[in-house]
């Protein structure tokens, strides 16, 4: 009859001779692997692995220099030539401007003298005919030709003084209508106030002798009569 096994017998039987162990070679492999991994952890951080940062930075800087350097090479001579040209050009331009200023000043003096003459004549004509001197506000342009170069500039307002002919009497042309001062006298003459008209005319011509040249026709007879009887004298030229 076969033996009956209970649980304890089976367990004891199994655990009795369980001495199987891994081969020594396998032990060595595992222990060597464990020691090797620990040594890898203990190794200081290799700074050589991070040295690519400065190298890459230097390389990037060199690339930037190589890429941007041709621009400098192209522009540098231009800058030099511009500077030398500026110096020469400025000197020449300065000389030309000085010459132009002298020319302008001469021309101005001449023009100014003419203007004085014209202004004097204008004053006389205004005194004679009573027109107002008008000043234009519009800026004008002076054009100066200097050695083939045209320079145009706006003339300052205070230097703009274009003189319009104030009256046709300035050029010796008779007025078609009498001045208002004469009109009053003509009206008095029309009202048969011969004495009042004469007194008024004498008074006006004494105040404004320039009006002697512009006596209107209706008063011409009265004027000649006053000259003859000595009540009025023609002023000296």
């Amino acid at each position: 009859m076969s033996k009956q096994f209970n649980d304890d017998d089976i367990i004891k039987l199994y655990q009795h001779n369980t001495d199987d162990l891994p081969p020594r070679q396998l032990d060595e492999v595992i222990l060597a692997r464990a020691a090797q991994e620990v040594k890898v952890d203990e190794k200081p951080v290799n700074t050589k692995t991070n040295r690519w940062w400065p190298y890459s930075g230097i390389a990037a800087a060199m690339v930037a220099v190589v890429v941007l350097a041709p621009w400098q090479y192209d522009q540098a001579p231009v800058f030099v030539s511009i500077e030398s040209a500026d110096i020469n050009g400025i000197t020449q331009a300065h000389t030309a401007v000085n010459e132009a200023e002298l020319t302008i000043n001469k021309a101005r003096r001449k023009v100014f003298s003419d203007e004085q003459v014209i202004a004097h004549e204008t004053t006389q004509s205004i005194a004679a005919s009573g027109p107002q001197l008008e000043m234009t506000d519009q800026p004008q342009v002076e054009s100066i030709v200097v050695t083939g170069m045209t320079v145009e500039r706006a003339v300052p307002e205070h230097r703009v003084h274009t003189i319009k002919p104030a009256s046709s009497a300035l050029y010796g042309i008779a007025l078609s209508e009498p001045l208002p001062e004469f009109a009053k006298i003509i009206i008095k003459l029309g009202n048969n106030d011969q004495q009042g008209a004469e007194e008024e005319l004498i008074k006006l011509l004494e105040e404004k002798p320039e009006y002697h040249e512009g006596i209107p026709e209706p008063l011409e007879a009265v004027y000649q009569a006053l000259l003859k009887n000595g009540k009025l004298q023609r002023p000296l030229q």
């Binding site: 032990d27 595992i30 222990l31 464990a34 020691a35 620990v38």
Partner: peptide, 9 residues
């Protein structure tokens, strides 16, 4: 400590 692993193993 690799000795600790050897003991454990």
């Amino acid at each position: 400590n690799d000795t600790a692993f050897a003991e454990l193993y």
